[in-house]
Design a protein around this nucleic acid. Structure first.
Lengths: 221, 221
DNA sequence: AATCAGTTCAAGAGATTGCTTGATTAACAC
DNA sequence: GTGTTAATCAAGCAATCTCTTGAACTGATT
C-alpha cells in the first residue's frame, strides 16, 4: 500500500469525473439535464448533434456515473444522478469565469451585449417575491417548468411570449429567468419586453442555482 | 447571437476547466497545491514524473487559469489561483466517490484497509479541541504546516514520527491529519501509534477541507 | 410475425493527449 | 565571461478522443 501504481490508478479514477465533463457537448448535456430528465432525441436536438453521437456522449457520462437512465416505452430518459453533479458543473463554470480571461467576450459573442439588460440577484428577487410586487416569468420550455420552477413563477415558453404579452398587467415589474447564466431565453425575453415598454429584468442566473440556494421552489402536478 | 458556433465555442471554453483536471497526474498536482505553493521540482517528485512532463502539466493548468506561478531566483513556484479551484477539486472527488462504484476498492488498494482505523469527523475534532483534551498531529511535510494548519496542531512530519513518539503525553488521545482523504500519512501515523498502544484516530479528511469549512486555522511566522 | 421508432453499437479517419528525449532559456555564483 | 541549477520548449510516437456512417438491437404496435 502507498505504492505508485495504486496511487496512479486511484487518481486516474478520480479524474474520470473530470474527463466526463471535459467536452463542450457533454457540458451542454449536463447543463440541460440540470433542468430535469430528457430523452436522447431531445438532448440531441438541444446540442445540435446526431442522435448517435449524443448517445455516445451520454454513455460516457453514464460510465462516469454522472447521469442515470430509465426506459419508458421506446424512449430512454437521462437525468443527473445526484445534485452533486449539478454542483460540480456550477463550480466548474465558476472556476472558468474567474480564471479564463476571454470567457466574457465568448459569452457576449453567444448571448449578445448584456450591458443594457437589467439584472436582479437571487436575494433581490427573493425579497421582491415576498413583497409580491413582481411578475416572474419562467421562459424555459414547458416540461422544464413542470419539473420544477421558482415558486410563484408563470410558465411562458420562449415562442409563446410574443402572443401572451397581453397577460402582463400594466405597469408591472417583470423578472425573467431560464436555465442559467449562459441561457439565451431570459435575455431574449427581457429585450422583447423592454422594447414593448415593459419594465423587465433578468435573474442573474437560472433555476438550478435558485434551487441549489435552497430558495422556494414548486413543482407542477 | 444565439447561434450554434458561438455556443460551441463558449461551452468548449467552459469545458477547458474540466479538461485541465481530466488527468490523474494533474489531479495529483492540484491535490498537492491545495496544501500551498510548490516548485516544479518538488511537484515532479510528488507525482513521480519527470520535470519536463510535470512542467507540461503545469502549463496546461496555467493555461486553464487554475494555477498561477511566480519566480523566486532560479525556482518557479506554482499555487492554486483561488480557493474556488480547491472547491472544484473537492467537488469532483465527491462526485467520483458518490457515483463510481469501484472507487472504494481502488482507495483501499492504495491506502490499505481502513476499517480498523479510528476516524473522527471535523465537528468531533472541533469539539474536542475546544475541550482541550486531544493532541492533534499534523503529519504533512513541514512546509505545508507552515503554510497553514489546524489551530493547536503540532507539526510532526511523517519521517520524524517514530523518533518523536516520546513527546506524546501518557494516556493522551491523538488525532492525526494530513492532506486529505486520499493521503497516506495520517493512516500510517495512526497505525504506528496504535501499534505502540497510543489511542489514535485519523481526521476523516485533511487540512484543505478543514480550512474550507471555516474552522480555526493558524499560520506559522 | 412483421414493422416501426428510438436508441445503441461498431468501425474508421483525423485531431488531441501523454510521455520521452534532447536542446534551449533564465537566474545566479564565481 | 563560464559553469551550474531550474524550468521550459520542441519533436516524435503511441494511445485516446470526436465525429461520421451504417448496421444492429429493443420495445411497442399492427
Amino acid at each position: 500500500m502507498g505504492d505508485r501504481r495504486a496511487k496512479t490508478v486511484l487518481y486516474d479514477a478520480l479524474a474520470e469525473a473530470a474527463k466526463a465533463l471535459a467536452n463542450g457537448r457533454r457540458a451542454e448535456l449536463v447543463d440541460v439535464l440540470a433542468q430535469g430528465e430528457r430523452s436522447v432525441e431531445e438532448l440531441a436536438e438541444e446540442i445540435d448533434q446526431t442522435v448517435a453521437n449524443t448517445s455516445q456522449h451520454l454513455q460516457r457520462l453514464l460510465k462516469a456515473g454522472l447521469v442515470t437512465s430509465r426506459r419508458d416505452g421506446t424512449r430512454i430518459y437521462y437525468s443527473l444522478s445526484s445534485p452533486v453533479v449539478g454542483t460540480l458543473w456550477r463550480t466548474m463554470r465558476q472556476a472558468a469565469e474567474l480564471h479564463v480571461a476571454e470567457l466574457d467576450s465568448l459569452a457576449s459573442d453567444y448571448l449578445g451585449d448584456r450591458s443594457k439588460l437589467n439584472t436582479v440577484t437571487r436575494d433581490q428577487l427573493k425579497a421582491r417575491l415576498r413583497q409580491g410586487d413582481v411578475v416572474v416569468l419562467d421562459v424555459r420550455p414547458e416540461p422544464e417548468f413542470t419539473a420544477g420552477h421558482i415558486r410563484g413563477a408563470i410558465s411562458v415558453p420562449p415562442q409563446d411570449l410574443k402572443s401572451r404579452l397581453g397577460e402582463i398587467p400594466d405597469g408591472a415589474d417583470v423578472v425573467a429567468y431560464c436555465r442559467g447564466p449562459y441561457c439565451v431565453y431570459a435575455d431574449d425575453a427581457v429585450r422583447l419586453l423592454t422594447r414593448r415598454g415593459i419594465n423587465a429584468a433578468r435573474l442573474e442566473d437560472g433555476f438550478p442555482e435558485w434551487a441549489a440556494a435552497q430558495l422556494p421552489v414548486a413543482r407542477s402536478r
